[in-house]
């Protein structure tokens, strides 16, 4: 464990908590893409099946359980408890356009053809693009609530910090995993536009609105 990975995990945790609190406190999931949240639940489910086979550390297991539980709690809030506030008219991204290529890619480029390894590879590819329905929704409505933009920033920053962690591990542990690195870089690039607007607008106290 190094500081970059720890900070990345903290950002990830903060993002999830911010999203849950936003929905809970405002009693509304307006502006949140349920489809992105379905994809994230799928990402955690397929990646953390190794919870039952591989023990790394208490930290590792606890975080996995938190990510799994919070992703399903988020789905419950969006699709059950606060369903009336779910903005399905703007959440129109076709997730099969992400799921099918991710399945195919994980069958083509993987470390090993074992079920756990294939599921992990799929989860890495899917995570890279899972935010697209949310970004699509923001681009459709042209705006995001400030709290939603904080959520997106923390979620994007997490993988960016992981990239620094991989560079660090490359030099200190001679460790490199091509699949995670390439997917992680693509994932971070998808947030780049958002990062720019977040830093130039939200951090200066303005609302997050896309340029007309």
């Amino acid at each position: 464990m190094n500081i970059f990975r720890l900070l990345g995990d903290i950002c990830h945790l903060v993002a999830i908590i911010v999203l849950l609190l936003k929905i809970w406190k405002t009693r509304s999931c307006a502006g949140i893409s349920g489809k992105s949240q379905i994809l994230f639940a799928l990402v955690y489910t397929t990646r953390y099946v190794d919870l039952f086979f591989t023990y790394v550390s208490l930290y590792n297991s606890v975080m996995k359980v938190i990510f799994l539980a919070s992703s399903y709690a988020t789905l419950y809030l969006i699709y059950v408890k606060f369903k009336a506030t779910y903005d399905f008219n703007h959440d129109t991204f076709r997730i099969e356009f992400l799921l099918i290529p991710c399945v195919i890619l994980s069958l083509l480029i993987t470390h090993d053809y074992s079920p756990v390894e294939l599921l992990w590879t799929f989860s890495i590819y899917l995570e890279a693009v899972a935010i697209l329905p949310q970004l699509f929704m923001v681009s459709k409505t042209g705006e995001a609530e400030t709290i939603t933009s904080h959520y997106l920033f923390a979620l994007g920053a997490y993988r960016a910090l992981y990239i620094v962690n991989w560079i660090y591990r490359y030099y200190t542990e001679s460790f490199i995993d091509g699949i995670a690195v390439v997917a992680g870089i693509i994932q971070t690039i998808l947030y780049a536009d958002f990062f720019y607007l977040y830093i130039t607008k939200v951090l200066k106290g303005k609302d997050f609105k896309l340029p007309a």
Partner: peptide
């Protein structure tokens, strides 16, 4: 260089 799945990462 070791190339494998980083099992310790989340």
């Amino acid at each position: 260089y070791q190339r494998y799945r980083p099992k310790d990462e989340l």
